[in-house]
Design a protein around this nucleic acid. Structure first.
Lengths: 124, 124
DNA sequence: TATAGTGTACTAGTTAACTAATACAGTTGG
DNA sequence: CCAACTGTATTAGTTAACTAGTACACTATA
């Protein structure tokens, strides 16, 4: 896994897992790879993986079972909530930045639509 | 200045200055506050400010003059280029994230437009 | 019931970011 | 000229993130 060395690795691991869960690649109730396997997968240390997980465990997104593994919560509401939170955070970032640059709302929308059209071009 | 402790302070200072320059609060040729004053303004150390500046100096956005101060470049093309770069980076972040969440392009646009409408409501 | 695979905890050491303090070099205005 | 302001450099110490290695508690299965 390629890391952005400006952002703590444990946060990037969280984001990676969040995306897997929200996109459904990791379904509710699914078992995650073991912490040791995850460490190999993302080329990080077990401790770093554990740190990423521990916060997600606090949020109850992941439920650990000693000796068995870590599991995705079966609380689909919680997952939906996580999805909303992530999307909202992303939007807030761009929006605040561009407002600080004195863009108007309509400019922001126009430019973003333009960007997506340039990037996508292939998706429905 | 309130910092996000997940992002290096020197990067946040850069972003702060970038925004001032792009929005025009700091015009081409303007003198920046002294490094010591900036350190006070953003509540950081002189060295941290200097580190933020040194990268911007490398990019020629800021031109230092020993004994006189730091000045915003008079190269307006360079500033326009910086503006484009910042906007593009922001858009790329959201877009990549949401694509990774299996959103389609049209969904991304729809949700973003909705978000801006909810946030703005007051701007033309 | 062993053995191998789990999560978890702890200690130790490295590195980058940051702070603090000092010093030096160049510029400007009285 | 000199005092007060600039940018710049250096050294030293702190902290958080990360790595590495080890150990322990628990679970499943052969």
């Amino acid at each position: 896994m390629k890391f952005d060395d400006k952002i703590p690795i444990y946060l990037q691991i969280q984001n990676y897992l969040d995306r897997q869960i929200i996109s459904g690649e990791l379904a509710p109730g699914d078992r995650l790879p073991s912490v040791r396997q995850l460490a190999v997968d993302v080329t990080a240390n077990v401790n770093t993986v554990q740190r990423a997980l521990s916060e997600m465990i606090d949020e109850k997104i992941i439920v650990p079972q000693r000796g068995r593994g870590n599991f995705v919560t079966v609380d689909v509401d919680l997952i939906a909530q996580l999805r909303l939170k992530l999307v909202d955070e992303q939007f807030a970032l761009v929006y605040d930045q561009l407002r600080a640059l004195n863009f108007s709302d309509s400019e922001i929308i126009d430019k973003f639509v333009e960007y997506v059209k340039d990037r996508g071009a292939l998706n429905e």
